[in-house]
Design a protein around this nucleic acid. Structure first.
Lengths: 215, 215
DNA sequence: TAATAATTCAAACGATTGATTGAAAATTTT
DNA sequence: AAAATTTTCAATCAATCGTTTGAATTATTA
């Protein structure tokens, strides 16, 4: 019966890193939260930095796992699908991603760390850029290009590439601003019903954009 | 001839806080960059925390200053304007805000600190919430409600309120992700021409959304 | 069960942290 | 020019930082 100290360290550290940032978090606090000795961090992760990177790698792996069935299909559609299929595929992708992100399985903490690293790139940035940011941007761009028949319109293609950045950020906004939004909307929380409203906003945004540039 | 040490401290500190976060920044590094003694921080700002808050207050003041002519007019339109006027007003507001944010007058550093504080609210959060976040959300919501004739449709109004969150975040995305975007778009930088493309994307997004929910 | 390996731990390391002190220097006011 | 005020500075404070060490403990293997 082995103690999974490594896993506990990852969990506790994620929560503290998210609240206090990398520099604001002390190894002592992590160890204390995990009820382990400080040296266990060096033992398992070769120091504070290694632990931080392991957390981001974990996030990338989780998202990749959640998309592993949909992504190959989406790639196929973006190359050979009809515009209608492509639009449906974008919507499905956004729905899955957003549901996944909003779900309680997916920790707020991981996203907070992810966005911190994105806004302020450090040594761990390549992990999230190549593992998450780049592939998702690419599939979004290609699908919307297909959905709006923009293959042969370079200036539209460029506009779509640009558009994927606010789109991408929108996916996380509702998670990261959860407290502010609940207060602002006078909601009691992110209920199933409210989550549907959030997804509807995102889908409306994408669909109206596709529709607008298609003509 | 008085030295404006206070101003220099604010400038240097903003740059370092943006790159390294609050905890990651040492008062010694700030003082060194400002070519002043460490104790000058306590002398002018009553400590590191006070300096940090002064920086955010400065940001709020700058944005308020930039909007001081447009905001009262927008408020009037949102109450008594025609839908067409309201739509035009939103677009103008987004154009000004985005131009202002993208301009080199407006430091990337301030926004990085602002978004850090938003994602991870601390003692300084009320400064940015009441000074910036809340008023901008309100004017956006009211204008889009007016533009889409949603006054008597509560569920549409709620959707618009929700929509202002990704819209608000979109305003900053192109500044905070500047390096990634330039690389991704294969641009040489944020030229005047490219800035126009960015603004066009934002306007397209808003207009198509308004158009979509109006019918 | 004995030997081996993996894990945990208290203690200590030098380095750095934010803040304070009181005197020195510079500036402004009288 | 003298007095008063504001600003700057070197020096020092206790506290905390991340990491390392080597022994003690636990778990695994033989």
């Amino acid at each position: 019966m082995k103690k999974d100290s490594k896993k506990i360290l990852l969990e506790k550290a994620e929560s503290i890193f998210a609240k206090k940032g990398f520099s604001g978090t002390s190894t002592r606090e992590i160890a204390s939260a995990a009820k382990l000795n400080i040296s266990s961090i060096s033992y398992y992760f070769e120091g504070k930095k290694g632990l931080y990177q392991a957390i981001l790698q974990q996030l990338v792996d989780k998202v990749s796992e959640a998309l592993k069935d949909e992504l190959p299909y989406a790639k196929e559609i973006s190359e050979n699908g009809t515009p209608k299929d492509a639009e449906e595929c974008v919507c499905n992708l956004i729905t899955s991603l957003c549901s996944f992100i909003l779900s309680k399985d997916f920790s707020y903490n991981g996203i907070a760390i992810f966005l911190n690293e994105y806004t302020n790139p450090g040594e761990a940035f390549p992990i999230i850029y190549h593992g998450l940011i780049k592939p998702i941007h690419e599939i979004f761009t290609n699908l919307i290009v297909r959905a709006s028949c923009s293959e042969n319109h370079p200036e539209q293609k460029e506009m779509i590439m640009l558009y994927t950045f606010p789109l991408f950020s929108s996916l996380f906004v509702f998670k990261t601003r959860e407290k502010t939004i609940i207060q602002h909307m006078n909601w009691k929380g992110y209920t199933e019903n409210n989550n549907q409203k959030i997804i509807k906003v995102l889908l409306t945004q994408v669909k109206s954009f596709i529709n607008h540039i298609s003509q």
